[in-house]
Design a protein around this nucleic acid. Structure first.
Lengths: 210, 210
DNA sequence: GTGCGGAACTTACTCGCAGTAAGTTACTCG
DNA sequence: CGAGTAACTTACTGCGAGTAAGTTCCGCAC
């Protein structure tokens, strides 16, 4: 019985940990993107990779852990993209527009990434929530920095107001992104970024002189 | 054996359907508010009411159904509160401030209501998602109406821009609400409403003349 | 080579919870 | 009082997260 049928030439036997982890992560990103967090079971992911569930648990600890790993990558890319665009802008007015533009374009170009990021919201309990908040905090910090950049140097800054503005902008861009993915014919990233900039630019000056 | 010990004087035997439904709804609202959607099991709710699980299923159909029923009530109250405030305002500038103020005050006064409403986000699948979107759509419609109210009558309106603005405001207020519940010492509703109005008012005029 | 240590991987479970089938109890009206 | 029905229960199924206890394969010392 040494010759039980084992059809595959080179199936994909044992791989080293790093390679497997990458393989699992890619599959998870795809499936989470398609079916959402709730709609994805660990068995699904395991089957897709051709591996058993406990292995995934060994590498990622929990479903939240796996989801978080996906999140971390995507959010990192998004944050970098926007931050780069903002930093490259010549002045604050441009930075605002260019930052929004980078945000909406990135999400257009990575639709399934966005599905994963949107699902963040669904994790309101567990350790995932904290991590999620950290991400958002990073974004808000970026925005707050931009806002402060725009203020005259010596002026006393009302930190509460800066926070309020930064939170508002973060919320606005998130909701716009969700809306665009669902709208039948969403406006272009340029249009949205332009309108948003028009809406906010004047008000940011008001802040300045408060 | 007719006298098996049944300790309670008037426990709470059979009640008619309407009364039971109310009782269940109240318990559910409380528990969902405390532990979130995921953290609440139907058995918990049943135990709390002192009733068995299938009864809840008979009345509300599913966990989503029960949650939705909670949502519907709270959202209705919130929407009414804000709409009333807005309608009572003498002009558009005031309407903006007063609307925001009503929003943040309501959420301060009904903290557990807000927990339920925030959990909306976690339902990205199922029939709950649609209902949730309807709510938000109602809010956005209110905002859009306000924005349009503020435009010169004869002017051609760019519906895309109105939508973008309305979505932004909706997103901003939601995120601010979440932030406030988590912040150690959140600014007063007045402060937040004021800052938000300052941020947006100028820009809304820009829209006008686009 | 041969044996041994550890990393990669699996089978075969438990447990919690949403949802259900099939019945039982109590009120109400002819 | 009996028949019908609304209110309610016990006792399950099924699915999916998470785990205990192995088994197989590879590299390396001797």
């Amino acid at each position: 019985m040494t010759s039980t049928t084992v059809p595959q030439g080179p199936p994909k036997r044992r791989r080293d940990r790093a390679a497997r982890e990458r393989e699992i992560l890619e599959a998870a990103e795809r499936i989470f993107g398609e079916r959402g967090y709730q709609g994805t079971s660990m068995d699904d992911v395991a089957a897709q990779v051709g591996v058993s569930k406990p292995l995934i648990y060994q590498y990622y600890g929990s479903k939240d852990g796996l989801f978080l790993a996906c999140l971390a990558r995507l959010r990192g890319q998004l944050l970098d993209t926007v931050a780069d665009a903002v930093m490259a802008a010549p002045d604050a007015e441009d930075a605002l527009y260019v930052g929004f533009l980078a945000w909406f374009r990135f999400l257009d170009e990575h639709p399934q990434a966005w599905s994963v990021l949107v699902d963040e919201g669904m994790l309101s309990a567990g350790p995932a929530a904290e991590a999620t908040d950290e991400v958002r905090a990073a974004f808000i910090e970026l925005i707050a920095t931009m806002v402060r950049m725009n203020l005259p140097a010596g002026r006393p800054v009302d930190d509460d107001e800066v926070q309020i503005v930064a939170q508002s902008i973060s919320g606005a861009t998130e909701r716009l992104a969700i809306w665009r993915t669902r709208a039948a014919t969403p406006p272009t990233p340029e249009k949205v970024a332009r309108t948003l900039q028009d809406l906010l630019w004047q008000g940011l000056h008001t802040l300045k002189t408060t």
